[in-house]
Nucleic acid binder design. Structure first.
Lengths: 225, 225
DNA sequence: ATCTCTTTCAAACGTTTGTTTGAATCATAC
DNA sequence: GTATGATTCAAACAAACGTTTGAAAGAGAT
């Protein structure tokens, strides 16, 4: 049994990853049991521990499989921008698009489950689970460094602390953009007009760039009006 | 035992609510066991079921205690604005400030644990737990209705769908603003310069208003640049 | 056919989970 | 004091949890 089983199912390892990804989105990490995963993957209960070692290791594998590719695509997009610019400073809008556009492209991929993963990832930024946070921080270190550096150079007049905060705010907006396509309707009783997912990126980009370019806050005054 | 126990501890019911709130922030709902809660609250294991009925009911009680007050404060702030305006349309910035400023004021309250709760609330928007989502949707229905309606009237030229999406994006930015005061540093290796929490509101407001006022997206063009 | 390595399987492991029980303890009123 | 109602307590409950085990089954090479 090298690539395909007796039936034409994918490898057990991949079936487990797919099932786990979907179930983590629906029920969270702690709300998803090994039996749910192996059941949905048509695998034996012991298969997770055999292929991955533990549940925590499986969680990491689910993330690594997609996150590595996503962040490499982000870095490649930034590389391309910097190569085109040839030393001259980048436009902030291009940097933002390289980071968030790449993410939303994956979130729009319903074919290979990228949308599921992005919903999982969005939620996990606020995950209390200690080792997941640690893992995400490591996985994001290089990308954050590169993109924040690019933004610092693109916005030389803006204090770095403000840039970082605004980048953080943008991450929040993106998180809700991805995770909340249905929650926004549920909360507001919206008619749910079957939003075109392709409209999400322009919508989000307008908002993000408006926020990024906004006048800097004035901390002193209490009522600037 | 009417208000105080033999020692001068608060009522068991309140000790449980406080302990649960803190532990939910640190470990999430499923990651927090009844034994952790009652242990931290110096109460017997059966106390939660006696006072609240079940763990799920306790979760709801934790939310209701703070959320009702928060949303009432939001509605009161909006009432005040509308009374001052006396029929004329409100400034969008005031509406946004009434909604998000009220939340950040609670998030800045380290004295009575409001900051803990707001971190919990921010995370819970993306909670997969079905009954928690349902509960939040109900608890937010009126506030959403009022504030979205006010924004619709304040921005008559903007399609309602766009306003709703931007409000949703704003919620995401606020969520990260509150939940991520440390995660933004962890991810970017920021020097953690002991940010003044009082600066968070002006920071966030600038970003939100910039995003809200941004030019509307153009869906047709692929490269508006 | 036999050996070797990988994968699958059913069963059980010891913990931990949320909840329930019935007696003990408390405060208060009669 | 004694009865009443509310609260606390130690103990136990069945169910579910992640993990481990040792045997069975499969695949490929010699």
């Amino acid at each position: 049994m090298s690539t395909e089983s007796r039936t034409s199912q994918p490898e057990t390892r991949d079936r487990i990853l797919d099932a786990a990804e979907r179930l983590f989105v629906e029920h969270g990490f702690e709300g998803t049991s090994m039996r749910m995963i192996t059941g949905a993957a048509n695998a034996n209960l012991a298969a997770v521990n055999y292929h991955f070692g533990s549940k925590d290791a499986l969680i990491q594998a689910v993330f690594r499989r997609r996150l590595t590719a996503l962040n490499e695509a982000r870095l490649a997009a930034l590389d391309r921008l910097e190569a085109e610019a040839g030393g001259s400073p980048l436009k902030p809008s291009r940097i933002v698009e390289a980071f968030f556009g790449t993410a939303l492209a994956l979130a729009a991929d319903t074919e290979h489950g990228g949308n599921l993963f992005m919903r999982l990832l969005s939620r996990t930024y606020n995950e209390p689970n200690a080792f997941v946070r640690q893992f995400l921080a490591e996985e994001y270190a290089e990308v954050m460094d590169r993109f924040l550096g690019a933004l610092f150079r693109a916005l030389p007049g803006v204090p770095r602390g403000e840039v970082m905060w605004r980048f953080h705010f943008m991450m929040g907006a993106m998180s809700f953009a991805i995770a909340g396509i249905e929650s926004v309707h549920a909360m507001a009783g919206m008619p749910y007009e079957a939003d075109d997912p392709s409209k999400l990126l322009p919508r989000l980009m307008s908002f993000l760039l408006g926020g990024l370019r906004a006048p800097l806050p004035e901390f002193g005054a209490t009522d600037p009006d």
